[in-house]
Amino acid sequence: MLSIDKMIDRIEELPSPDFVVQKIISVASDPHASAQELADAIMMDASLSSKVLKLANSAYYGIPRRISVLSEAIMILGFKTVRNLAMSVFTYSSLFSSNGTEAINRKSLWRHFVYVAVGSETLGEILGYPVKEELFINGLLHDIGKVALDVISPRMMRAISSITSAKNRTFLEAEKLLEIPPHTSIGAKLVERWGLPDVIVQTVEGHHSPEMFLDSINAEVVAIVHVADVVANMMFPGDSLSYGKPNLSHDALNLLVLRPKTLIRFMDRFKVKVKKADEFLEM
């Protein structure tokens, strides 16, 4: 069995965000940046820019008029949304280009990423969280640890896979049962290494146990992604190789003041939103 440190060393084998993606992330979080600067950064990769434009014009956003220029997309959808699109394209490609087993279905896992991203954004919208775009990227990356685990130790992934599907257990329960370093910690180390913001590191680390970060300034983000993840796992069991009954954190519900009525409203809206997210699934 590999120790977590040895595993982290092997994370190098995973593709890391290239220069373009890194530039996009830094421009999108620069308060002085203009739309044109962000557009310039994306245009450095022609295939990325066309994919971003395609997503911007997708049914998910449903913009009433067609956007043909990146800077316009940035103005209309916002800097952070366009950054999310770029990040989605990168995550998608890294997910499908990396080596790994067939123990986990990459397509299903990607669908889980997109659905939790959409779910987090939708829940934020319903709860009145002002920067819902931040929720999208956090939801998108929350389970990146599972990709890492698959690359680092296909053997472990296979073991987990057999337990969760056969015994109707959650991914987390299987990890504990097998005494495998959790995908949350591995994922957190990975995004930290990629130089992504703290909030993403904390979300990846705490999305199964949001109580860890109750005192953090990112507590709400972690809690929202947690709820979206649990709901996605219940509605689409197995997408992230997790079966059984996921545990919904009371601390998260309390922190978000999430009442059953609101939760039901979220689930209704979530169902509508995922139907519009098809273009994210096939890039």
């Binding site: 449903g62 913009i63 009433p64 103005m75 209309i76 959808l77 916002g78 919208e125």
Partner: peptide
């Protein structure tokens, strides 16, 4: 009006040229 409805429906803050 079209853009207003879109922004309200998506609860998105956006800027159009």
């Amino acid at each position: 009006s079209e853009l207003i409805e879109w922004a309200l429906d998506n609860k998105t803050h956006s800027f159009y040229p």
